[in-house]
Computed example of a mutant assay.
Amino acid sequence: MTVPKALRLDDRSIISVAGEDRLSFLQGLVSNDVRQVTDGGAIYAALLTPQGKYLFDFFIVGAGDALWLDCEAARAEALARRLGIYRLRARVTITPMADAISVVAGFGTGAAAAVGLAGADPGTAAALSSGFAFLDPRLPAAGIRCLLPSTDVPTFLAGHGFGQASRDDFDRHRLSLGLPDGSRDLIVERSLLLECGFDELNGVNWNKGCYVGQEVTARSKHRGLIRKRLVPARITGPLPAPGTPIRQAERTVGEIRSGVDGLALALLQLDALALAQDGGPDSELWAGESRVRADVPTWVHLVADRPQHPGLSR
């Protein structure tokens, strides 16, 4: 019998945004509609530069009279400082919660059922004896995330029937789905959200109104300006280091991002990706001495992202 797996994500941390203006404050900053967050609900969102380039991504969760941001631990202080720049007269407090609250990820068959969320919509939450759990708002297959007091994690894992996962187990799971992992896969002040799947992963709301970087993001979508996409890839040979250029024939067409074992994420030019999918002479992709084969999941919509002309249709 297969049991779901879970692990504490030690590289994640929580920032609390509290105060009566918390919803309007974040609503004017981030890429998703914060009004969708109810107590215990969750959305996925990003904070951008005014030029529409990636700075931070995170989950936003309703937690009583506060909003909790599930973010990268190594960059939590930087995110709190950036939010503080925008605070001005907003009646909010921005508090990194350090090690008090832990983020636990659960995945595999039965993960949602283990916390009472079987069949629920992405982002739906359920209260636990302490803390709460929610379905990953990006993809149903991604699994669950739980935010709970750090001291309660061992009891939670044992009491809900989860097997212990390793970090490699978790990375294999997310890489197979094509899910980026913060600044491991998105380049700060360089990456565009639509290159990295934020539209399909429910990280952008097109009807919410203005936020930082909104104009550039909207223009990229409506004018078809995206020329690259971040996609899962299978590697034959040694796993290339992040940042290794990807070649097709004699030209550089992308680069490797994070990976484990024979799986990685790769940022690829769309014309090179189309050629690789079609096959034929000079279509193979290489990173160093290793063969790279794009394994595009069904949720990635490539056709709408690139100009429609001969040689670029899927």
Rank of each mutant, 00 (worst) to 15 (best):
G40R: 10
Q164W: 00
G182S: 06
P137N: 08
L139E: 06
R138L: 04
A90V: 13
D271P: 09
L265H: 07
N207F: 06
V30M: 05
E20Y: 09
A66K: 11
T38E: 11
V153Y: 11
D152T: 12
R172E: 15
R229T: 03
L194Y: 03
R81Q: 15
H160I: 02
A218F: 05
G182H: 04
S150W: 12
I94G: 07
L48I: 00
E250C: 00
I85D: 13
G64Y: 14
A127Y: 05
L267V: 13
G123Y: 07
N207R: 15
S166H: 08
I246Y: 03
G116M: 05
R174I: 10
A111D: 12
R219C: 12
P281W: 07
G119E: 13
V104I: 10
N202E: 08
A127C: 05
L26P: 09
E250M: 01
T93I: 02
L193A: 04
L285V: 07
S220V: 13
E195F: 06
D169G: 06
G123A: 00
R35I: 00
R91A: 14
F170N: 13
L201G: 04
L79C: 11
L79Q: 12
A80I: 08
L192F: 12
G259E: 03
I15L: 05
A111I: 07
S16D: 10
D171W: 13
V253W: 01
R91Y: 06
D65P: 08
L194R: 06
R91S: 13
A114S: 13
G259R: 01
F198L: 11
Q51I: 06
V61H: 09
L55V: 10
D33N: 14
R145Q: 10
E189M: 10
L117S: 08
N32D: 03
R184G: 01
V188N: 15
R167K: 06
A18P: 07
A111W: 07
A63S: 14
E215V: 01
D39K: 00
G209A: 03
L263F: 11
V260M: 00
L186Q: 10
A45G: 00
D295K: 02
V17Q: 04
A105M: 04
Q164G: 00
P232D: 02
D152V: 07
Q36C: 01
A165P: 08
L302S: 02
A294L: 05
D305M: 11
V188C: 14
P245L: 01
R22W: 04
R247D: 10
L193I: 02
S176T: 15
G19D: 13
L179M: 08
V34S: 01
V260R: 03
F56N: 08
L128Q: 10
G84E: 07
L117H: 11
G209T: 03
P310N: 10
R219F: 09
A141T: 07
A105C: 07
E200P: 05
R234V: 09
D10T: 13
D278V: 00
A294W: 04
D168K: 11
S176Q: 15
F132Q: 14
V37T: 10
L83I: 03
D271W: 00
P149H: 06
R145E: 10
W299M: 04
V253Q: 01
A80P: 14
G279D: 05
I246A: 05
L148S: 08
A141H: 11
T151A: 15
I85P: 11
G62W: 00
A249R: 12
L135W: 11
K221I: 05
G209W: 04
